[in-house]
Design a binder for these strands. Structure first.
Length: 448
RNA sequence: GGUGGGGUUCCCGAGCGGUCAAAGGGGCCUGACUGUAAAUCAGGUGCUUAGGCUUCGCAGGUUCGAAUCCUGCCCCCACCA
């Protein structure tokens, strides 16, 4: 009974629909039927282009988790083979090849993240889960690597068995290829051109070996996904399905997952849980309801209530705190998320004083820190020097400007415009002080 | 290969012998107002020991003086074959 106008009957599609997480799908009704009849195996691929995933990858990860929460069997695929080739989709120019060692290193990194987040998604809001699902929670979500089945192929075999099923005519019509062909000085290499054969074959392989009937991915992956469903239909005469997720942009049309400072990584070393939390907290109010549906596992009623609250401007901070906490929890764990909330309250609150080193160090574990020799403090350190040496400002000129604009704070207390020296008086605990530049940049200065 | 137009500070883009550290816009930063939001407003946005110093594709040259003129080189774009 699903279809353009109908309600899907499978639990998972119902969920993804109200969350607005479906961009396109192949054979809607048939897919809905299959998903409502029983447990379906599915997968989503992740490119090993870096040793950490970033916030953009969170969407497919959550989607996989949602399937799992509805009793299906998701898998994550890391592209050990495809990563060596490079996906031309959405790229205006040929990419540099990544070395094999680098790809391996990247795979190791993102594997851990996938595992952690996928597992954690099963521990959150468990009251929504059916008993069957709860009983199966201890089974980890499988993570496969396409290098395992791609590497053994010989070129000739691959061309005969896979290449034969792809028409260059069709491949040439794809936007990602067309753009590159029409732009004379940014052609496409045979290597990248072949990318879709590999991704298409991955699907066939998983279909045969793991009964994988569905591939999901970002909306840019539509072409690559249908390459797989087509290949399966052609060689196996069976249906396989594809589903893509929407490309999320904010009210200004910008993509998520990037801040001015760069990408928001899922790796705590690259983007600390505190920064991660702050990223979500600081997004536009307007975008929060939409994002809450997509990036949290909160149930519908709760999302609706919170959305209504933020829309009516009734203590919107509460809603944002909840939202940012949920996302941080999913990625970094509850403890880290709780702490991010505490640190944030501390930082955006009153003057910092009366804390011990231990408390301060604990609160600011994620914040950058800088060590200053005790002797220098005794004689006094010019504030501009401190700002530059701690890395908060890149030149003294910039430090002076900031000062003049009233943007320097020590222990959350405005420093004033005068260029005086920082001394022992400025410590907030035994050996530390908190230096802040502007609203959101702080650094712990430790005396050693 | 031929012809024409270009490469300017994070980006776009003006400047075409001194008054240019270089208009304007975007971005970014800071402040005010708020709510750590958005919108709005104000200021800032090469380095500096504040006297200077280094920047306008690269290398030379002309000149008292060059981003601006000349020569060579590199790269890009457009049209033609």
């Amino acid at each position: 009974m699903s279809g353009q106008n109908g309600e899907p009957k499978s639990g998972i599609l119902k969920e993804l629909t109200w969350r607005d997480m479906i961009k396109q799908q192949t054979h809607q009704e048939e897919l809905d039927q299959v998903l409502s009849e029983g447990s379906v195996s599915l997968y989503c691929g992740f490119d090993p282009t870096a040793d950490s995933l970033h916030a953009g990858s969170l969407l497919p990860i959550i989607a996989l988790a949602q399937f799992r929460r509805h009793g299906h069997k998701p898998m994550a695929l890391v592209g050990g083979a495809t990563g060596l080739i490079g996906d031309p989709t959405g790229k205006s120019a040929e990419r540099e090849l990544i070395t094999e060692e680098q790809v391996q290193k990247n795979i190791d990194g993102i594997r851990v993240q996938l595992r952690t987040i996928l597992d954690r998604a099963l521990e959150m809001h468990t009251d929504q889960l059916s008993d069957d699902v709860k009983n199966a929670l201890h089974e980890p979500t499988p993570i496969v690597n396409n290098a395992d089945w791609m590497k053994p192929w010989s070129f000739i075999d691959f061309l005969r068995d896979v290449g034969k099923h792809f028409k260059v005519n069709t491949m040439l019509a794809r936007d990602s290829v067309k753009d590159r062909l029409e732009n004379r000085d940014q052609g496409i290499s045979y290597t990248e051109f072949s990318y879709m054969l590999i991704q298409g074959y991955d699907f066939l392989h998983l279909f045969k070996e793991k009964s994988c009937a569905l591939q999901i991915g970002g909306s840019d992956q539509w072409g690559n996904i249908t390459a797989g469903t087509d290949l399966i239909r052609r060689t196996e005469s069976k249906s396989a399905f594809g589903l893509t997720l929407p490309l999320l942009t904010n009210s200004q049309g910008k993509k998520y997952g990037k801040s001015e400072a760069g990408a928001i990584w899922l790796d705590a070393e690259r983007t600390s849980p505190y920064e991660f939390y702050q990223y979500w907290y600081n997004l536009d109010d307007e975008d929060i309801p939409r994002l809450m549906r997509v990036f949290t596992l909160l149930p519908e009623e709760e999302v609706d209530a919170l959305s209504a609250q933020i829309e009516s401007k009734n203590r919107p901070q509460q809603v944002k705190e909840k939202f940012a906490h949920e996302v941080t929890w999913l990625v970094h764990g509850k403890e880290a998320a709780d702490k991010a909330v505490r640190v944030s309250k501390m930082l955006f609150g009153e003057e910092i004083s009366g804390l011990t080193d231990k408390e301060l160090a604990d609160l600011f574990k994620d914040a950058p820190s800088f060590e200053l020799e005790a002797a220098r403090l005794e004689s006094g350190v010019p504030i501009a020097d401190l700002l530059v040496e701690s890395g908060m400002q890149k030149s003294k000129g910039a430090a002076r400007r900031l000062l003049k604009q009233n943007g320097v704070y020590i222990n959350n207390k405005r420093f004033g415009q005068e260029e005086r020296d920082v001394t022992r008086e400025d410590l907030s605990s035994e050996t530390m002080l908190v230096l802040r530049a502007g609203k959101k940049n702080q650094c712990v200065v430790k005396i050693v």
